[in-house]
Design a protein around this nucleic acid. Structure first.
Length: 844
RNA sequence: GCCUCUGUGGCGGAAUUGGUAGACGCGCUCGACUCAAAAUCGAGUUUCUUCGGAAGUGCCGGUUCGAGUCCGGCCAGAGGUACCA
């Protein structure tokens, strides 16, 4: 390589190999240094790395490399979230085995990650589809089962009658199977559940301790867990039964004008037993779509059962309806309806001509105020409510609950929105659930010495349905308890289970068990977790749950796995499209020539429409392949682009001009590094104090910015310093500035840093193994500062003053300014505000 | 509907506890070098201007000596979520 140009095609590979040989990034659990666990959400091996991965892993890499320079023992691992549907789809479409397809993808993607020079500890790599990994997961599942955290329950699934398979909600489009197009049926299957609801309170209160999580994510989780407080009480029905209901507004109890039950409710079922009309109505309720859009427009429908419920205070009979808007799986599946103060009840009462009494109003005088076409759910004072009249809402709630409890007909309760986690998947490519069904012994766990329960290799994807179910021999086993012929469970675990503990396995990976608790305690919690906002709820909640569940069975001490969470934005690009025969056709950026304000298709020279700037996606074809841009610009330019300009939590618009600019900056730095020896004999003694200060300030600021993950600001600081060093006259300060700069840019541009140090003799050993430059606090303050002078709050002049100049001196200096005097123009000075080191404001 | 976040030049975006708005980058303009181009280097780049200044951070108002920042009310966009009783 010549010193003229930095050639990433040669340098990148050289240094990646050097880091590997030196085992730079292998974390040592025995180290006495302070630890730092930096983790990015591991990828699904879909085929190729996409640009979102590059951004995610570059951020984590900068932090990991920086922390290493700062003297931490850093754990920065990588692996593969390798089970899931796409592998099975590929098997069906291409006739390949899901395992072969997955491991091929892993090989490709690992090669791509290596090309980016990430400081990853590859010695700890694993894929969740490795039998060793999922075997330990099966053991954990059995432990949770034995601790009572796993149970089986009949549950409804989406069933595709053509593909003979269960579909996830996302695979049901307009009520039809996404692949077969067949009308999806609801089927009841016996499925496996995890008792996440047992930890609902703990998962909710635990959020308070996660100060270094985005507020947004904590809110989303809190809403998902959905704690609500209210009153549960039972109505006496005219047929002699009792009907429990749940309400969050017990204060409005005197406004109840009817009672409603869900279509699946036992009361509804009992009525339907001798009424075909009721049967028809229940069938009608079940037919309705469950999509948000369908519910938005769905009309409130009801069926009068003829039964009445006795109001607990007034004794009045209230009609009991079967209603389509009442859900069986929330609360008790039955409600007391208060049309005046609940919009759904209001619509229902309006349609069926039921009374709409007012029991809450702005003041007692408004007790007769009519409703304006909708319910009033707001705060106020109780009216028309017997002993509650005059009370505030909160006070009335407490009063009703205490009377119900005293009378023994109800109690204050907490209800959660969170449901138990259904983990059964009727799929091949997942962790087999390690249980055996025996006619005599029931459900029996596979003995631990027989784990892992491995997936069979010889499977057939040509026939629809679950290959495990159809396999000729796999499921036929003997019962571990009684030895009689029995059947293996053919469901596999939801892939979210795989990602619920992988961070523990990264920290510790003994052969004989999932992890060593002491070693895990040493690394956990993850100090910085980085990933996409799309995992804000499910993955992060499940991982928090699984960690607690393991702690519950005594497997570890840690409760919160991720001390600090960062959710990065997406990489976006404009779209290029054209209407062809009334249909939109999309083109990739590579197929398009950008011309000033417009764009044309290279193939025919005709214009294409420039569409919105949106997340890169295959369907809109607005994608760039990381491998192409690494080849064109080198890993460091790509990494630099990922960090520049946009704050990391926001979207990053990809642009050709932007990456070109980064490529130029890499070369500009290279030219500067090449000058490190140019101090010259005569200049060696010179010290450039201004430049020395600038260096210390920049080192301190960049460190702060990286710690805060404000990479765009760190980048701007480095640009500034580079500009200053370039312009500075030759001196020993300038030479040492260049040496410092090499280390300063190393977390972002590691290949360039190593190559420059080696090529220009700028130090000994690998930059990756070096330490972060020391900052002298005395060098962070300037002796002279610029003071702004305002008149009536507007800037009139700036002046230079010693940093500790007194208020009096500053005021005198300010008044001496010609520009300021011209602005004051002889007016009387009423007040002068002086902020030392900052400004003087003169008020006339 | 509810909850959360975001609105700053042509673009991405900076801006300590309220204290010089537009750092830094991209793009663009002009100049140098070159036969020419690329690369590189230098100067400029919020708007208006009578060249003194004036206006300006989505809109309207408020607090303050001073507001991008704080308060009240709107508007727009993004995300989350929902017949959750």
């Amino acid at each position: 390589m010549t010193a003229e140009r930095f050639d990433p095609a040669v340098a990148d590979g050289r240094w990646q190999a050097a880091w590997d040989d030196a085992r730079c990034f292998e974390a040592d659990s025995a180290s006495t240094k302070p630890k730092s666990y930096v983790l990015e959400m591991f990828p699904y091996p879909s085929g190729r790395i996409h640009i979102g991965h590059v951004r995610n892993y570059t951020m984590g890499d900068v932090l990991a490399r920086y922390r290493k320079l700062k003297g931490f023992e850093v754990l920065h691992p990588m692996g593969w979230d390798a089970f899931g549907m796409p592998a099975e789809n590929a098997a069906m479409e291409k006739g390949v085995h899901p395992g072969g397809w997955t491991y091929d993808n892993i090989a490709t993607m690992k090669g791509q990650l290596k090309q980016l020079g990430f400081a990853l500890d590859w010695s700890r790599e694993f894929a969740t589809c490795d039998p060793e990994y999922y075997g330990h997961e099966q053991a954990q599942f059995i432990d949770l089962y034995e601790a009572g955290l796993v149970y089986r329950k009949e549950s409804e699934v989406n069933w595709d009658p053509v593909d003979m398979t269960v579909l996830a909600n996302e695979q049901v489009i307009d009520g039809k199977g996404w692949r077969s197009g067949a009308e999806v049926e609801k089927r009841k299957l016996n499925q496996w559940f995890l008792k996440i609801t047992q930890f609902a309170d703990d998962l909710l209160t635990g959020l308070d301790g996660l100060e270094n999580w985005p507020e947004k994510v904590r809110l989303m989780q809190a809403n998902w867990i959905g704690k609500s407080k209210g009153l549960e009480f039972a109505f006496d029905l005219s047929n002699g039964d009792k009907l429990p209901v749940y309400t969050t507004r017990p204060d409005t109890i005197f406004g109840a004008s009817f009672v409603a039950v869900a279509a699946d409710h036992p009361v509804a079922q009992a009525v339907a037993a001798d009424s075909t009309e009721a049967q028809d109505f229940i069938a009608l309720c079940k037919k309705g779509g469950t999509t948000a859009a369908a519910l938005e427009t769905a009309e409130k429908l009801g069926f009068d059962t003829g039964i009445t419920a006795r109001h607990p205070f007034s004794g009045e009979p209230l009609p009991v309806y079967i209603a389509n808007f009442v859900l069986m799986d929330y609360g008790t599946g039955a409600i007391m309806a208060v049309p005046g103060h609940d919009q759904r009840d209001f619509e229902f009462a309006t349609k069926y001509g039921l009374p709409i009494p007012r029991v809450v109003a702005g003041s007692l005088e408004d007790s007769g105020k009519p409703f304006d076409g909708e319910a009033e759910a707001g705060d106020g004072v109780l009216v028309n409510s017997d002993f509650l009249t005059g009370m505030a809402v909160e006070e009335a709630k407490a009063e009703v609950i205490s009377r119900a409890e005293a009378g023994g007909w109800g109690r204050g309760t907490v209800v959660w929105r969170l449901r138990d986690w259904g983990v059964s998947r009727q799929r091949y490519w997942g962790t087999p659930i390690p249980f055996i069904h025996c006619d005599a012994c029931g459900v029996v766990p596979v003995p631990k010495d027989q784990l892992p329960v491995k997936l069979p290799e010889d499977v057939d994807f040509k026939t629809p349905g679950n290959p495990l179910e159809r396999h000729p021999t796999w499921k036929h086993v003997d019962c571990p308890k009684c030895g009689a012929a029995a059947r293996r469970e053919t469901d596999t675990l939801d892939t979210f289970v795989n990602s619920s503990w992988y961070f523990l396995r990264f920290a510790s990976q003994p052969k004989d068990k999932a992890f060593d608790p002491a070693e895990v305690a040493q690394w956990l919690p993850v100090d910085q977790y980085i990933g996409g906002i799309e995992h804000a709820i499910l993955h992060l909640l499940y991982a928090r749950f699984w960690t607690r569940a393991l702690a519950h069975v005594g497997a570890l001490e840690v409760k919160e796995p991720f001390a600090s969470l960062f959710t990065q934005g997406m990489v976006t690009h404009e779209t290029y499209g054209r209407k062809v025969d009334g249909r939109e056709v999309w083109y990739t950026p590579a197929e398009v020539e950008r011309t000033g304000n417009g764009a044309t298709l290279k193939a025919d020279g005709q214009p294409v429409q420039i569409g919105k700037v949106i997340k890169m996606s295959k369907s809109k074809k607005n994608v760039v392949d990381p491998e192409d841009i690494i080849r064109d610009y080198g890993a460091d330019a790509v990494r630099w682009f990922m960090l520049s300009d946009s704050p990391p939590e926001r979207d990053l618009p990809w642009s050709e001009a932007g990456i070109e600019g980064c490529g130029r900056f890499v070369q500009r730095l290279w030219r500067l590094f090449a000058q490190a020896g140019n101090g010259g004999a005569g200049a060696d003694a010179e010290v450039d104090m201004a430049l020395e200060r600038k260096i210390h300030q920049t080192v301190a600021a960049v460190a702060e910015d990286i710690e805060a993950l404000s990479f765009n600001k760190a980048v701007a600081r480095i640009y500034e310093l580079v500009g200053a060093v370039e312009k500075a006259p030759l001196s020993s300060s300038r030479n040492s500035a260049i040496r410092t700069l090499v280390v300063l840019v190393a977390p972002m541009m590691p290949h360039l840093a190593e190559e420059a140090r080696a090529q220009f003799n700028l130090g000994i050993g690998l930059v990756a193994e070096d330490s972060w430059p020391k900052v002298d606090p005395a060098m962070l303050v300037e002796d002279e500062v610029t003071i702004a002078v305002q008149h009536k709050g507007k800037l009139r002049d700036t002046l230079t003053a010693p940093k500790d100049a007194s208020k009096e001196d500053l005021e005198a200096l300010a008044l001496a300014s010609e520009k300021v005097q011209r602005s004051i123009d002889g007016a009387e000075i009423r007040k002068v505000i002086v902020v030392p080191g900052r400004l003087v404001n003169i008020v006339t």
